[in-house]
C-alpha cells in the first residue's frame, strides 16, 4: 500500500510503525534522554520512539517541543521517521532542524488503516512524499 503526503523534511526511513490515535506532546511528554513517552494515561505511555516510524494526528503543548525532537535526533534516539495527519509548527520545525524524515497531510482513511508493528518505508524529497506499507 502506498500512502501519499506532503513533504516536511527530506530523507528515507525503513522501520516498523508506532501509531498513536492521540496527539503527542513532546515537551513534558517525551523524555529527551531515553525517547520514552512519559505522559501518564497516553496510549503510547512507556513506548520508545527510537527506530520506529511514529504516526500520530498532530502535536500539542509547548513549542519547546521542537527542541525536544532536535535533542532526540542529536542523541540518535529520534523516531526513524514521523508521519502526521495534520501539519503543525512544532513538528515541522523539530523535524527540519533535527533532520528527521517527515511527511504530513495523509488522509484520515489512510491513517485509520495503519497499525503499530506494520513494516513500512518513508520516502520524502523536496517535492514528493510517500509511505510504503508492506502488505501482509
Amino acid at each position: 500500500m502506498k500512502i501519499p503526503g506532503h513533504p516536511v523534511s527530506e530523507g528515507v526511513a525503513k522501520a516498523e510503525l508506532l501509531v498513536s490515535p492521540e496527539p503527542i506532546t513532546f515537551y513534558g511528554g517525551v523524555d529527551p534522554l531515553t525517547s520514552k513517552v512519559t505522559e501518564p494515561g497516553h496510549p503510547l505511555y512507556g513506548e520508545v520512539l527510537k527506530d520506529r516510524i511514529l504516526v500520530f494526528p498532530h502535536s500539542k503543548g509547548s513549542t519547546v517541543g521542537s527542541y525536544i525532537i532536535l535533542r532526540l535526533a542529536r542523541r540518535g534516539i529520534a523516531p526513524a521517521g514521523i508521519v502526521t495527519l495534520k501539519p503543525d509548527e512544532v513538528v515541522i520545525v523539530g523535524c527540519v532542524i533535527g533532520g528527521v524524515p517527515s511527511m504530513t497531510g495523509i488522509s484520515e482513511e489512510a491513517f485509520n488503516t495503519l497499525r503499530t508493528g506494520d513494516k513500512a518505508e518513508l520516502r520524502v524529497d523536496r517535492n514528493y512524499a510517500e509511505l510504503l506499507v508492506e502488505e501482509l
Partner: peptide
C-alpha cells in the same frame, strides 16, 4: 524565546 538551558539542553546549545 527558548533561551533556557534547562529546556533546550546541550543539543539545543550545540545547534
Amino acid at each position: 524565546s527558548g533561551i533556557s538551558y534547562k529546556n533546550i539542553g546541550d543539543e539545543g546549545l550545540q545547534f
